[in-house]
Structures are given as C-alpha cells and as structure tokens.
C-alpha cells in the first residue's frame, strides 16, 4: 500500500514541478487539471490506508466541482485580449 501511495506522490510531484516551471498559461492550466485528478487518487488511497471514509467526501468535491475552475480558466484564455 505504501508503495502505491509513494508512486502517486511522485506523480503529483512531477505534475507540480511542471506546473511551476512551464512558461505558458495553457500548459499551466493543463498541469493544474492533472494535479487535481492525481490528488483525487491520493485521497482515495489515503482513505483506504487510514480506514476512514472522511477523505472520500473531499474526493467527491474535487471530482464534481474541480473542473469548473479549469473551464473558467479555459474561457479566460479565449476572452482576454492580452497575448502572452
């Protein structure tokens, strides 16, 4: 179990380092989306390893509400006039 959590943490770390170092806004939005999805998996694994269903509610929130932020930033990418 610990090895699986470590693997998911490594994935989260890789996505986070890409999130920090990429220069373009669209790449950063993609990395943010990926971080959200990987953290759902992390929460599911933590709730299994600590035998508590508390973590699952937060995982539900990430799964149901988290994509609204991505959609907002995607719309912002089109609607803004500044070109960076």
């Amino acid at each position: 179990m610990n090895w699986i959590i470590l693997c998911v943490c490594a994935a989260l770390l890789a996505a986070f380092v890409h999130f920090l170092y990429t220069p373009k806004l669209s790449d950063r939005i993609v990395a943010f989306d990926t971080m959200g999805i990987i953290s759902i998996a992390l929460l599911v694994l933590l709730s299994l390893s600590t035998h508590s269903a508390l973590y699952l509610d937060i995982a539900f929130v990430f799964g149901l509400i988290g994509f609204i932020g991505t959609i907002l930033f995607a719309k912002y990418l089109v609607a803004r006039r500044k070109d960076v």
């Binding site: 269903a53 508390l54 509610d57 937060i58 929130v61 149901l64 509400i65 609204i68 959609i71």
Partner: peptide, 18 residues
C-alpha cells in the same frame, strides 16, 4: 460527516455557475 450549510450552499451555487 464533514460539511454543513455553508459548504453545501456553495456547491449548489457552483452548479448555477456551470
């Protein structure tokens, strides 16, 4: 379980945002 009035209300409002 964790949660309550404020959190549930904001979740319903974000459905309207969608």
């Amino acid at each position: 379980s964790p949660g309550g009035g404020f959190q549930g209300g904001v979740i319903i409002a974000s459905a309207f945002v969608l």
